[in-house]
């Protein structure tokens, strides 16, 4: 199913550096446009991929918060959080093997590009140094993303950034919008709700829609 994303060699190496300097199990970088996550750009392992996918599916999680509020988000014990922030994301992430999770905004100045995610398979906070190092890696990720985009003409999307774009989800949203005669925005909400209720990833549900194994205009018989 999900493999390690390495469409962007520079960013993949950055994830490895993040794992190293922050002494975490894995790392991933999420790209966003406006407030919308646009998928995971790069990751150090399969669990980090799942973390990005879960956030994309559920619309909540540390990267989305870090990107949205423009500051670092830290949950040193996902199983016993001080404040419940991510009611849907937390149990799914724990099931995937995540015990501590941290999000850092990927930005330069006021330009917000996404977030860096770090996770550990055991609970525990980042030290001050590890936190500071992660912030530097996040800053470098922002510069790397802009540098990639700087290599293509306006209007085009750098191939490295395009490689991780979740095309199938947008295609499915278009199909479901016709099936239900709703806007594509509403169709995306329906897809997310279905994925959440079925305990599946959004991309997997979307693939079923595009392959016509699942349709939303079927009479309600639940199991497709």
């Amino acid at each position: 199913m999900l493999g390690r994303t390495d469409g962007t060699p520079g960013l993949a190496r950055l994830c490895e550096v993040a794992v190293d300097v922050a002494a975490v199990t894995g790392a991933g970088i999420m790209l966003a446009a406006g407030d919308q996550p646009q998928g995971g750009l790069s990751s150090s392992d399969g669990v980090a991929d799942v973390i990005e996918e879960l956030q994309f599916t559920l619309g909540e999680g540390p990267c989305i918060d870090a990107h949205g509020q423009g500051s670092a988000v830290s949950e040193p014990d996902l199983a016993a959080p001080a404040v419940t922030r991510w009611p849907a994301f937390a149990p799914a992430a724990i099931e995937a093997g995540v015990r501590a999770i941290f999000g850092f905004p990927v930005r330069t100045g006021t330009v917000r590009l996404g977030a860096l995610n770090l996770y550990r398979d055991r609970p525990g906070p980042l030290s001050g140094d590890q936190h500071a190092d992660a912030l530097v890696v996040a800053d470098l990720a922002a510069l790397a993303i802009l540098a990639l985009q700087a290599t293509v003409a306006p209007g085009a999307l750098a191939a490295e950034l395009d490689a991780s774009f979740p095309a199938v989800v947008q295609q499915a949203a278009g199909m479901v919008s016709v099936q239900l005669n709703v806007t594509v925005g509403d169709a995306l909400v329906r897809l997310r709700a279905h994925a959440f209720a079925a305990g599946r990833l959004l991309s997997a549900v979307a693939e079923d829609v595009v392959a016509r194994r699942l349709a939303f205009d079927d009479p309600p018989s639940d199991v497709p």
Binding site: A33, G155, L157, F165, A167
Partner: peptide, 11 residues
């Protein structure tokens, strides 16, 4: 960043 957002939106 504007170019990136526009390219992503087109996509």
């Amino acid at each position: 960043n504007d170019q990136l957002s526009e390219a992503l939106n087109s996509r």
